[in-house]
Structure formats: C-alpha cells, structure tokens
Computed example of a mutant assay.
Amino acid sequence: MPPDETAPPEEPRVRAARTKRERTRRALLESADALFGTRGWNQTRVEDVAAAAGVSPATAYNHFPTKHALIGTVYAPLIRPLALSAEQDRRTGRPVVDALSDQVRALSRTSARHRTLTAALGLAMLDYTARTTAPPDPQDQGDPRNLAPMTTAIEGLIEDGQRSGELRPFPPAVELSGIVINLLLVRSLNRPDETAEQTAEMLLTVMFGAVKPELLAGRGVDGRPFSGDE
C-alpha cells in the first residue's frame, strides 16, 4: 500500500525521540544478552543491565517491566528462524519425522551455542510458572514462555503428524512438546559439558519413543537409536 501523501510529515522532535527510544532498547537487549549469557539468571539484575547499557534503572523498567520480560525478549530471536522453518515444512507437507528431527537438532545446537543464556531462560520460565501456578496466558506479554515460545514449532509438527496418523495420538502434542522443551532446558542447566548431538539424541529418543516407537526398533548401536545420527 503506498504511503499516505496527505499525512503530515513527522515532527523532528517526535522522530528524534523515537530514534532515541529504539537505540536505548537495542542497547538494553545487547547488554542483557551479554550479562545473562555470562552470569546467568540469578546473578543478573535489571539494574545491572541498565548500568551496562548506560541508562538508569527507571529507563530500563520503562522498556522492560520485569527481568522475565527482558530475558524472554532477548531469547526470542534465537528461536524465530526455527519457527519459520517449521512453518515452511508444514506448508510444503514435508515428512513430519524429518521435520521434527531437524527441529530438535537445531534447538539442541542453539542451546549448546548459548548454554548459559538457555539455562537462564529455563530458570526464568520455571520462576514465572511458580509465581503464576498456571499454564501460559496468551494475553500475558510479560511471560517469558510467551515471549520465547520454544514449544510452538514442535507442537505444531506433532499435531500435524498425529492428525495424519503418522504419529500416535498420545501424548497430546501440547504435552509432549512441553516435555521435550523442559528436558532441553534442564539439560542446559545440569549438563554443562553435553554436546548438541548428545542432547538431540536424548530428546529424539524420548519424543519418538512416545509417538513413533517403531522408529526406534533395530536402529543405532547398544540400544541407542539416535546415537551419532544426523
């Protein structure tokens, strides 16, 4: 749609204020990424992020009302490409086993590459869940589970496979995707030396063991169907 040529030009002061706000937000996210990624969840405060970004705590809270909202926003870009890949796979009808396998491996690589940040996100989600004692509310945009929706891509692919009969109908997609992501987050916290391949092996075994156990039969070495499998 062409721009409205009748609209009055933006005032310089308004444009400058918007540019400053965008620059401040970017600085906060970059600082938060660095601090959460090195110190973790418990050792990082919003005040620390504000100091690293060169702004006041009040300014930081004006952009991100809670630490939970801040880390969710930081992590979101890491999973966005995976969500887009899953959407493409679903749209083109790619075999669900292949699509799910690639999703899990990609998530495992992302987790390994950003292990401390991923562990921090897991603790943030656990803390938020404990505070709300409820599943995510889609309307709550301060919930890191909504801001960084790690289950969405896997859940959609499992739903497609269950609907087509390629995967067993139980556990439901929403439950199984949650199990897979929770296991990933826990392992990012308590398996600091685990490789992405080892994490993916465990997640794939749990996931397909539940909804496509025949895939595990006769595969792999020593009863490990996804060991070294790429």
Score class of each variant (00 low, 15 high):
D89K: 10
L147C: 07
A69V: 04
A119D: 04
P135M: 12
G54P: 06
E166A: 15
A153H: 03
H114V: 03
A32G: 15
Y61T: 01
A124Y: 08
H68D: 13
T132D: 07
Q43F: 05
R115V: 06
S56I: 00
M150C: 08
N146R: 10
A173L: 06
P172Q: 14
T132V: 13
L121N: 09
V55Y: 08
A120S: 09
R45C: 01
P149K: 04
R90N: 06
I79P: 01
R91L: 11
G165C: 10
E166K: 09
T132A: 14
T151S: 08
A76S: 13
A134W: 12
A50I: 09
M150Y: 01
D137A: 12
G122H: 04
S56K: 05
L70K: 06
R90M: 11
L84D: 14
Y128T: 05
V55M: 06
A58V: 10
P169H: 11
T38N: 02
A153Y: 00
Y75K: 02
E47V: 15
P169V: 12
K67G: 03
L84M: 07
G40N: 06
H68W: 13
R90Q: 09
L107S: 01
R105C: 03
D160C: 00
S56L: 01
R39W: 01
D127W: 05
L121V: 11
Q88N: 07
P135W: 11
Q103Y: 12
A173K: 03
L29C: 02
G37P: 07
V104D: 05
D137Q: 08
D143S: 12
R45L: 10
L70C: 08
T92I: 13
G142N: 15
L123Y: 01
N62D: 09
L147I: 05
A134T: 13
V49P: 08
D160K: 02
A130Q: 13
P81F: 07
T92L: 13
H68K: 02
V97R: 14
G40I: 06
G93Y: 12
V97E: 15
S108D: 06
Y61K: 03
L121G: 12
P57V: 00
A60S: 05
D102T: 13
A53W: 08
L107N: 04
I158V: 14
E47R: 14
R94T: 15
G122D: 06
S31G: 09
V55E: 05
T110M: 14
G161L: 06
Q88E: 07
A120D: 02
A76E: 13
A76C: 08
A173Y: 05
L126S: 14
V97P: 01
E47L: 09
L35Y: 10
Q139C: 06
A60M: 12
T152S: 11
D33N: 10
A86Q: 09
K67A: 04
L78K: 15
P65F: 00
Y75C: 09
A60D: 04
G37W: 01
L157V: 04
T118E: 01
Q139N: 14
D89H: 10
